[in-house]
Design a protein around this nucleic acid. Structure first.
Lengths: 215, 215
DNA sequence: GCACAAAGAAAGCGCGCGCTTGCTATCTTT
DNA sequence: AAAGATAGCAAGCGCGCGCTTTCTTTGTGC
């Protein structure tokens, strides 16, 4: 008997519906933006009624808040996976692979959803209060993940370690803003120049780091 | 006879009302975000009726589009002014002054308004079509202004000149994203580390540039 | 097996949105 | 000064929003 026709417990049905709503919310945030992520659009996408949505969530922002937690998890998991792949794969140009990984991450749907929530939280105080802890934890986790994956191989400590975190977070910011404006500016040549420049910058950084850790 | 009580021509009244509406729109975009920049909020702030607004603009997005043009102008004027001040003032640390200028620019209300329009245009096709030319021209003007103000003193040509543009636009992007997340993350230490790092990067760049232009 | 609780659908409610209408007041043209 | 054009206001219209209510279906504890 298939899962769809078979009997399911209330807990299973509940968890399944919530998951569908969260998925639909994330998809809508990434594709249509915060303002167009309405309860009716979410329910249409999740194939559930509005009554069902408000059975599980007290308000729209509460659902958005849970979706934001899930976005953080997925964002982090995706990036960690990519960064580990960069470290494991013996690339001819690992610095370039690293830079392009950060760029692709900033262009992902997960990141677009994150960005929409960030912007909306700036002027929606209720949303701000609900998602601020999640987003702050996200930044810390990102910092930690990046330092763990990248700083270990060069055995850097203290100041050098935090510097790597600062740089990678800055890379994320840069590509975040670039991705947001990309569809308007449509200037791939500039974007490639930027990637090239960042590769140079990171190579300089790495040289400096090796000099420190070698002494 | 004062300007407010004195008789004014239709053209003057028209221009004055439009200017008030544009100002109110920009203020609202910066303070309350795109979604909360409603026609009623704009009219309340401009002290005009909705009928008056729709006498001058066919739709809300049309007003937003005109406001976006004004935002571009102000943004550009403000930055040029700051950059010239940096160049004229004999600072002990001109690089740091430059970096902090870019950061303060990204934290300005003008930039916040620009960001709101950018994000909204991603998922609003009508707005996108109306503001894309303005925003593209803005990027080009920014590039030009930055190159004019900064590249001249070191007499760079061709490749070096475009590289300066790429870097400054990247700085703008970085601080754009940082400013957007600043109220959530509340991590001034990281932001200062970032500024320090960018000063180092720019010093390296400048060294390289001088090496090229000297040979 | 039966009373009860939880999940879900359908319809509807109040509200604020973008925008229109009908009108008056103010300038402009002749 | 008359006649037409323009600026501006107050009221209201249709619509889609977040959310609630009412009712039916489905799983659960005794």
């Amino acid at each position: 008997m298939s899962a769809s026709t078979g009997k399911r417990s209330q807990a299973e049905r509940r968890a399944h519906s919530i998951a569908r709503l969260v998925d639909a919310t994330i998809d809508s945030l990434a594709a249509d933006g915060y303002a167009r992520t309405t309860t009716s659009a979410i329910c249409r996408s999740a194939q559930l009624s509005q009554g069902a949505l408000f059975r599980h969530f007290a308000s729209r922002v509460e659902l958005i808040a849970l979706a934001t937690e899930e976005v953080s998890r997925r964002h982090l998991a995706l990036l960690s996976e990519k960064l580990l792949a960069v470290r494991e794969t013996r690339s001819a140009d690992p610095i370039r692979a690293l830079v392009l990984t950060m760029r692709s991450q900033a262009r992902s749907p997960e990141h677009a959803a994150w960005h929409e929530v960030m912007v909306a939280a700036r002027s929606d105080h209720e949303l701000h209060a609900l998602v601020a802890p999640t987003l702050q934890a996200f930044e810390q986790s990102l910092l930690q993940a990046v330092e763990e994956v990248l700083a270990l191989p060069i055995q850097a400590r203290g100041k050098e370690r935090t510097r790597v975190g600062t740089i990678m977070l800055s890379l994320m910011h840069l590509f975040d803003s670039e991705a947001m404006t990309s569809a308007i500016y449509r200037n791939p040549r500039l974007e490639d120049d930027r990637a090239d420049w960042l590769c140079d910058v990171l190579r300089n950084e790495l040289d400096a780091l090796y000099r420190v850790t070698a002494s």
